[in-house]
Computed example of a mutant assay.
Amino acid sequence: MSFTVRVGRKRAAGAALAAVLLAGGAVGCGSEKSDKAGEDMAPVAAVKKAADKTEDLTSFTFRMKGTVPGDGRVQADAAMSIKPLAMQMKMSAPDQGPEKMELRYVDGGVYLGGGEAAAKEMDGKSWIKFDAKAMEKAGGKSAATSASAQADNNPADQSTLLTGSKDLKKVGSETVGGVETTHYTGTVTLDQMRKLLENEDAATKKRREKGIKQYEDMGVEKLTMDMWIDGEDHTKQFRARGKGDKGRLDMTITFIDYNKPVNVEAPPKAQVMDLSKEMKGLQG
Rank of each mutant, 00 (worst) to 15 (best):
K65I: 03
A156N: 02
G70A: 02
M273T: 00
G8I: 01
T145A: 11
P94W: 09
A270W: 11
K260D: 08
S81Y: 04
L85E: 10
R241V: 06
K236N: 05
A51W: 03
V44E: 15
T189E: 05
A42S: 11
S34G: 03
A147Q: 03
A119C: 01
E265C: 08
K90W: 12
T145H: 10
T4H: 13
A202I: 09
G70K: 01
K169V: 14
A203F: 04
K83W: 13
A202D: 10
M227I: 12
K277T: 12
K33F: 02
Q75H: 11
A266L: 06
T224G: 04
A23F: 02
K213N: 12
K141F: 03
E102Q: 15
K206Y: 05
K169T: 11
F238E: 02
M225Q: 14
T61M: 00
S173W: 05
V272M: 08
K49A: 05
G211I: 00
N154R: 06
S126F: 05
E180F: 07
G66H: 01
P267C: 11
M193S: 02
V68N: 01
A23P: 00
V176E: 04
L161T: 10
K48N: 06
E116N: 01
K100A: 13
D131L: 07
A151V: 07
A149R: 15
V44P: 08
I128A: 02
S146K: 09
A118E: 03
G38I: 00
T182M: 01
D217Q: 09
K83A: 13
E121M: 07
D191V: 12
K206E: 02
L21S: 12
T61A: 07
K166S: 12
K195D: 15
V188T: 03
W127D: 00
V44A: 13
N199H: 13
M193W: 02
E99Y: 09
I256M: 05
T61G: 05
L196M: 12
A15M: 08
M279H: 14
N263M: 11
N259H: 07
V188I: 05
M1Q: 10
I212N: 01
G28N: 04
K36N: 00
D131W: 03
K83Y: 12
T187K: 08
K260C: 07
E221V: 12
G72W: 13
D217R: 09
Q96V: 09
V27Y: 04
A156E: 04
D250V: 05
P268G: 09
T204A: 10
H183D: 06
L161Y: 14
F62E: 04
M87F: 11
G219C: 04
S142D: 06
D71H: 07
E55A: 10
A134T: 14
T163A: 11
M225N: 12
S165T: 13
L57E: 00
A138F: 12
G186C: 06
Y105C: 02
C29D: 08
M89E: 03
G281L: 15
D95N: 13
A46L: 01
Q75S: 14
K280L: 14
M279S: 12
E278N: 15
T182F: 00
T160Y: 06
M279Y: 15
K137L: 14
P43Y: 10
N153M: 10
T204C: 04
E121R: 12
R11S: 02
L223C: 06
E174D: 10
K243W: 04
E116W: 01
R208Y: 02
L249V: 09
G70M: 04
R194P: 06
C29P: 08
